[in-house]
């Protein structure tokens, strides 16, 4: 299990990295934490002729406040995000999810942006960034653009990134008042790849009715799935157990399209998605209410 030969560059600035990408285009592959790319190279499933190693680009490692939200440099290690007090305060969903991503060893090396650029539909951060309405800053030598998270993931392991572009930063907006969040997933072993999972952010209006419910399913198709119909069912209503159950069932039945593999059939995944949707919605609405009444909010 040795990789095929490749050329290796280790730039120290983003400009330098972008120059390599501009020169080599499709032939080049940026290397972030390497937790997915290195195995692909060793199995010879990926054979890029050029590797652009981003690990020496210090300007990509940061977590900064941004109005009420956050800016996270794409190369920030997952372990750092996990332990960052600002993240805990401003993005409690991210804080809660981080320890569930693979193992400490992987998070120590794995990066926030690397997981997003890899676009695995079973990746926790992919769903969480959509649930939080994150925005991604993409740079190339020629230009820079911002892409909303829900437009970034276009297919299985496929993103809006052009070959000469680099994901450099993620912006997470502040959560609206009276919001609650939750995340649950089912893995075969603790911290394995997810076979079904849901991230959700809900917001209540001042009468205790659901104003917004952004529920995103992992491992439910070739990309993360936003449950728009379930959200419509919830909107404008006080969240009762019956309504939650109905919305969860709607999402699991009509909105997702999970596949089958050796670990879980589509039918089992769909069943799990319904169970998890009910559980996360219940938990998220409870948290939103707790925040509304000033009770034990986690932040």
């Amino acid at each position: 299990m040795k990789p095929a030969p490749f050329k290796y560059y280790a730039p120290v600035t983003v400009d330098e990295a972008l120059a390599h990408l501009a020169e080599h285009g499709y032939e080049a592959k940026p290397l972030a934490g390497g937790q997915s790319l290195i195995p692909l190279l060793n199995f010879r499933l990926a054979r890029p002729s050029v590797i652009v190693d981003l690990n020496n680009i210090s300007e990509l490692f940061y977590i900064r406040p941004d109005d009420g939200g956050l800016l996270i440099g794409a190369m920030t290690r997952q372990r750092q995000v996990e332990h960052d007090p600002l993240v805990a305060e401003r993005a409690p969903l991210v804080h809660e999810v981080m320890p569930q991503i693979a193992y400490p060893q992987i998070r120590t090396r794995g990066t926030f942006g690397g997981s997003l650029a890899h676009a695995d539909p079973s990746a926790e951060l992919v769903a969480v960034n959509i649930a939080l309405n994150g925005r991604f800053r993409l740079r190339s030598q020629a230009a820079e653009r911002w892409v909303p998270a829900d437009e970034f993931f276009v297919g299985l392991f496929t993103t809006a990134l052009e070959p000469e572009e680099l994901l450099v930063e993620v912006a997470l907006p502040p959560m609206p008042p009276r919001s609650g969040w939750a995340f649950q997933q089912i893995t075969r072993r603790h911290h394995d790849f997810c076979i079904a999972g849901v991230a959700v952010v809900v917001t209540l209006n001042d009468r205790g009715q659901c104003e917004q419910a952004r529920m995103v399913f992992l491992s439910a198709g070739d990309r993360p799935v936003i449950a728009h119909q379930a959200a419509e069912m919830l909107k404008g209503h006080a969240p009762s157990p019956e309504l939650i159950q109905a919305a969860a069932e709607k999402a699991a039945r009509d909105e997702i399209d999970p596949g089958s593999d050796i670990h879980a059939s589509a039918e089992y995944r769909r069943h799990l998605a319904g169970v998890l949707a009910r559980r996360v919605l219940t938990q998220a609405f409870e948290r939103a209410k707790a925040r509304e009444t000033g009770k034990s909010g986690n932040w």
Partner: peptide, 16 residues
């Protein structure tokens, strides 16, 4: 063989 790696052949870990 459809699961010739430790990503898919599931050895229980210390957590299991």
């Amino acid at each position: 063989l459809l699961n010739a790696s430790f990503a898919d052949y599931l050895l229980p870990t210390a957590l299991e």
